[in-house]
């Protein structure tokens, strides 16, 4: 029997995760970046006051994110664009999926959601972990060429 496990089977996951990030950036652009900075600031401020947000994460919001809100709003927006694009085209997949995972965990902590809830955050985190493990850009992706030219296991 032909083995069903191949990197190609992870392409739907790659496209979904990449497009989810990329379309979030398009939504931000459609509303305008000033609106995004205000929304981002309101979310972070609500997180500091919310009982749902983990106590361990509140000092990060109040001491680091809120004082530098414009920087972080831009960083998240650019992260959506570059990570979304890199994951869709399969470029530097392992590093891109790792950064996407970092972003996703931070969103989850900032919203005070559990890792085990019936929402999509936990599922997306699992999908990003799977993309890292599967090195999913090596099929129908830029990583296929990068790996052939400069073989190494960690970046792609």
């Amino acid at each position: 029997m032909k083995n069903p496990l191949s990197r190609a089977t992870f392409i739907p996951i790659r496209l979904y995760v990449g497009l989810a990030f990329f379309l979030s950036a398009i939504d931000i652009l459609a509303d305008g970046l000033p609106t995004w900075i205000i929304t981002f600031s309101e979310t972070a401020t609500k997180g500091i006051e919310s009982d749902r947000v983990w106590a361990i994460y509140k000092p990060i919001l109040s001491g680091l994110v809120v004082p530098n809100i414009t920087f972080f709003a831009w960083a998240v927006f650019l992260g959506f664009i570059f990570l979304g694009f890199a994951i869709v085209v399969g470029a530097f997949m392992r590093i891109a999926a790792l950064l996407a995972l970092f972003l996703q965990v931070n969103f989850m902590l900032a919203r005070g959601e559990s890792f085990l809830g019936p929402h999509s955050d936990g599922l997306l985190i699992g999908m990003e972990l799977a993309l890292i493990l599967a090195a999913a850009g090596r099929v129908w992706g830029v990583d296929q060429y990068l790996h052939r030219r400069w073989p190494q296991p960690y970046l792609y």
């Binding site: 083995n3 496990l5 191949s6 990197r7 089977t9 992870f10 996951i13 085990l116 809830g117 019936p118 929402h119 999509s120 936990g122 599922l123 985190i125 699992g126 999908m127 972990l129 799977a130 993309l131 493990l133 599967a134 090195a135």
Partner: peptide
Amino acid sequence: GHQSLGRAAAIIRIVTGIAYATSASF
């Protein structure tokens, strides 16, 4: 490489299962 792909698929299976189970529990 085959083991990594199997583990990647298992992670997706487990997180999806947890999401369905918690949704049902609510």
